[in-house]
Nucleic acid binder design. Structure first.
Length: 179
DNA sequence: CGACTTTGACCAGCGC
DNA sequence: GCGCTGGTCAAAGTCG
């Protein structure tokens, strides 16, 4: 997968968990968050096709709005909507991995098999991606992050980092054309 | 003052 | 049918 703006570091994790252990070039994986990528706990059988989960989904305005409206009307009809989900475990002091996106916490609740999972939503107004962050009871240094849905917008931090480069490319483009 | 977190209440799904 | 559980809402509080 291309260094997707949608999952800057997570893409490594999905594509190659072992490679993900060392991604020093990844600006979205600061030292304190260069977590030990332990394994995947997707709830799916192994051999799951990750591609559709990670590739940018083409903008489908109608479907998106309809989906939101559907969700609004049936406020708590959870577990009915089937959305791409994937989870992974990391060993990190930080609960929240800095994946380049901005998240808003909308809930935290004591549940049985995890002490206090936190619920986050992407703050982008058109994006409906959620993630759940919880620490494992057996080993509290391990954080389980579950993503639900796919971002339909570029990663803000990545775009921020790339914008000077893009400007340079734009400036150089005419010059290159002359050569 | 806007963005974000906290936290108690609410409610639907599920198992018994 | 009932109670438990997990996910979400929303008001209030906090922070920069």
């Amino acid at each position: 997968m291309e260094p997707s703006p949608h999952f800057p570091c997570l893409s490594h994790q999905i594509a190659s968990p072992s490679a993900a252990r060392n991604c020093p070039s990844d600006p979205y994986n600061p030292p304190e968050q260069q977590a030990e990528h332990l394994s995947f706990a997707s709830g799916e059988p192994s051999g799951v096709d990750w591609a559709p989960l990670l590739l940018p989904r083409p903008t489908q305005e109608g479907e998106d709005e309809a989906g939101r409206e559907k969700e609004r009307s049936s406020r708590r009809t959870r577990k009915v909507v089937s959305r791409p989900r994937f989870a992974f475990r990391t060993r990190s002091a930080n609960d929240v991995l800095d994946d380049g996106y901005r998240w808003r916490k909308y809930g935290q609740k004591a549940v049985k098999n995890s002490m206090y999972p936190s619920y986050y939503r992407c703050t982008h107004h058109t994006c409906n991606v959620k993630k759940q962050v919880q620490r494992m009871t057996e080993d509290t240094s391990i954080v389980v992050t579950t993503y639900e849905g796919v971002h339909n917008h570029p990663c803000e931090k990545l775009m921020e980092a790339l914008s000077p480069l893009l400007k340079q490319v734009q400036l150089l483009a005419p010059v290159m054309g002359m050569l």
